[in-house]
Design a protein around this nucleic acid. Structure first.
Lengths: 140, 140
DNA sequence: ATACTTATTGATAATGATTTTCATTAACAA
DNA sequence: TTGTTAATGAAAATCATTATCAATAAGTAT
C-alpha cells in the first residue's frame, strides 16, 4: 500500500526502485515500533535473501533524508528508526512492547517563551518525547 | 570545589578516590558544554598524563549511575555527557557554542494528561529538550 | 524488445566507538 | 606498615557504521 508511495517518493527524487529498497521499505513502512538497521536487515531478508546490511544503512539514510522515517532516541540507544509522523508531531513510546504513537497538540509556546526570557536564549526547536505503557501492555 | 563533592559521593558509594577519577571529575564537573569520552580524555590528560581512555569510560559510567552526570542527545550524536541538573530539570542547548543550560518550570501535566486520554497510554516519563542560541552567540 | 549508461548492489575491508580481559598498581582499612 | 582487593592502563575483542570496488541491474534511449 503505502510502501508504494514511499517507493514513488524515492523515484521522484531521482533514486531507482530496486528489490533491495522494496524489501527495506516493505518492513519499515509497516512497523509499529522503531527498528534498528540490523533488525530491518533480519526481517527484510526473509523476503529478499540477497539483501546486504550495507544497503539497509544506505536505504535508511535516503528515507530519512526524504523525511519518510525518523530516528528514535531512547535510554538504551539511538540507532532505531520509525516511520515519520506528518507535520509537527512528537513520539510516545511504550516501555514494554516498544510500540510508537504520535501526537500533536503541542502547546509549548508559553513554556518556550518563558524559558527564553529567563535564560536569554533564542529558542528555535524542541524535542519532546513521552514514555509509558500502551493501552495493551497496561492491562497485561 | 564541587568536584570534591563528586569525589565524596563516589567514596560514600564504596568507590575509591584515585588520581584518574580526580582528573575526569575535574574536567566534567566544571564544563558548561557536553563532552564526549574522547574529549574528556584529551582534556583530563593535560592534568594527568597516564590516564587511559578506558578509565574515562568507566568513570563516566559511575558518575551517570550516581546521577552526577547525564547523557545529552543531539542530532549529531548521543555520546556526550554534561553535569546533571538537580531534581526534575530539562536541557537547553546552544546550537552554536554547545553551551548547556537547565530549566525547570515544567508544566507538561496538562499536555501529558490530554495525550494519555487520547492515546490510552499510561505516561510515566518525558524528555524535553530545547535548542537555540545562547545570549552570547545570539549577539555575535 | 535491445542496448547502453550509470546508479545500485553486496562483499570485503576500514574506521570509530565501546567493552572485555588481564596482569600490575595503588586505595585504604586494619 | 601491611594485606586485601578495587582500580588501572594496554591490548585485544566486539559492535556499529562507513568507504572501496568490481559486478549487476534500473531505466532511458534506441
Amino acid at each position: 500500500m503505502s510502501a508504494d508511495i514511499w517507493l514513488a517518493q524515492l523515484h521522484e527524487n531521482g533514486y531507482r526502485i530496486t528489490r533491495a529498497r522494496g524489501a527495506v521499505v516493505g518492513i519499515v513502512e509497516r512497523s509499529l515500533r522503531a527498528l534498528t538497521p540490523v533488525e530491518v536487515y533480519d526481517m527484510a531478508r526473509k523476503k529478499y535473501r540477497a539483501l546486504g546490511l550495507v544497503t539497509v544503512y544506505r536505504t535508511l539514510e535516503k528515507l530519512e533524508e526524504l523525511h519518510l522515517i525518523q530516528r528514535v532516541h531512547q535510554p538504551m540507544g539511538c540507532q532505531a528508526f520509525i516511520s515519520a509522523g506528518h507535520g509537527h508531531q512528537h513520539l510516545l513510546l511504550c516501555q514494554n512492547c516498544g510500540q510508537v504513537a504520535f501526537f500533536e497538540g503541542d502547546d509549548l509556546d508559553i513554556l518556550t517563551k518563558s524559558i527564553a526570557k529567563k535564560t536569554g536564549y533564542q529558542i528555535s526547536e524542541h524535542w519532546l518525547q513521552l514514555f509509558g505503557l500502551c493501552a495493551n501492555c497496561r492491562t497485561n
